[in-house]
Amino acid sequence: MKISVEKERELVNEILIKIGVKEEHAKIIADATLDSDLKGFTSHGLGRFPQYIRGINKGFIETEGEFEIVKETDSVALIDGKNLFGQYVAHEAMSLAIKKAKESGIGAVGAFNSNHFGVTGYYSDLAIRNDMIGIVICNTDPGVAPLGGKKAILGTNPIAIGIPSETYIAVDMATSVSARGKLLEAKRKGEEIPPNTAIDKDGKPTTNPEAALEGTILPFGGVKGYALSFMIEIMCGPLVNAAFGTKVTGTAGDYKEDCNKGDLFIAINPEQFVSIDKFKEEVEEFVKEVRESGNTFVPGDLEVKRIAENEKNGLPIDEKLYETLKEICDNLEIDLDSYLTD
């Protein structure tokens, strides 16, 4: 079964409104959820949505209130998310970073006491739309062992970078071989994960997602992925008043404690270096050079292709996800089937 782009937006929005989320917040959360699915990151879209409902039901995600700016200068701010939806807090944090970058050339906004916010690239895209370079990083529950270690200490710690250009140029990736959400999705679907993705609790390679979740995911690229994840852990932990290492909780969906990870949103205004027109022109010149070099691609090409396909064909919903969504919708007196097509 499938759901169209607009129907998914409407469904998520209706669920959120019925559980008491403000309309302004619901619109942002629905847009971020849809963005994940359109780009093909289904592990962070509608498939992750039931996690948020559990968080609300257990009292770890707040549906009312506002975040607080606890420290601020012309170019820097620190936000206490007050346990609100991560998508809303992240959207407002990047919006503030963009505002500061327009005025001072660069904006850096940290956030703590927030929640899982979907795909990191949604927020770097906000910067792109404002002719800014966007950089977004965050830490997560421990799921990755330090290189050579056996105990999960690091998060999957994603990074996203977006470049304003005529061509969509963006990278959004975990610093581990796989995002944890992909393992959770594979577990839900009863599928195996690719080899060389994770090791089980005994340190043995596994393709079983459940065993991988009990063990550790491998850092991508060996020492390079480990080193990058290590640095992100510091910049999204101690730097922004958030937890780090084995102290991080709340992003994996178990909701035994409040989510205490940290986020960092950076916007850079190219106009403070060169004119935006010159910047874009030279970026396009570089893109052309890369494309003409052979059978290659530009970061962001795959997402553009997926978006076009999903807008045309609709977004798939597997049986397990359908059953979970059906239970949520039935409890809220929402007719899920009216949103779906075969």
Rank of each mutant, 00 (worst) to 15 (best):
K320T: 13
V89F: 05
I169A: 01
G203Y: 06
H91M: 01
E333L: 00
I268E: 10
F297D: 01
K305T: 07
E66W: 09
G118Y: 08
F112D: 10
P146H: 08
S275P: 14
K326S: 09
K312D: 07
K27V: 03
P164S: 07
G143H: 04
S165K: 01
I61K: 13
D342I: 02
A90W: 07
A198I: 00
D263Y: 15
G134L: 02
L147V: 05
L184G: 10
N331H: 10
S178K: 01
K7T: 06
L34S: 04
I234F: 03
V290C: 10
V223R: 12
T216K: 06
A127F: 10
V290K: 10
Q272K: 15
I317A: 12
T167Y: 07
E333C: 01
I17A: 07
G250P: 15
E210G: 08
R48L: 11
T42A: 07
L11D: 12
V177Q: 12
G40M: 07
V177R: 13
G148E: 05
E14A: 13
T63W: 03
T216G: 03
I307N: 04
K305R: 09
H44L: 08
S229Y: 05
E271C: 01
N57M: 13
E64C: 08
E292H: 05
E309D: 12
I328P: 13
N295Q: 07
A30D: 11
E10W: 06
I17N: 13
I169E: 03
V248F: 15
L126K: 08
I334P: 11
L38T: 04
F286S: 06
K201G: 04
L96K: 00
N83P: 09
G81A: 04
N260K: 10
A243G: 15
D263V: 10
M173C: 08
E303T: 08
M94F: 08
E333P: 01
A212H: 04
N241G: 08
A198V: 00
A174K: 03
A212C: 03
C236W: 11
E68V: 11
L302I: 08
E284P: 10
T341Y: 00
N157F: 00
K27H: 02
F60Q: 14
L147F: 11
Y122T: 05
L16C: 15
T120M: 00
F112K: 08
F67Q: 00
N139G: 02
S124G: 01
G105M: 12
V177N: 09
S165N: 09
T246H: 08
C329P: 14
A174H: 05
L184C: 12
L126P: 09
F112V: 07
G262W: 14
G253F: 14
M1K: 15
K280H: 07
D74K: 14
A179Q: 10
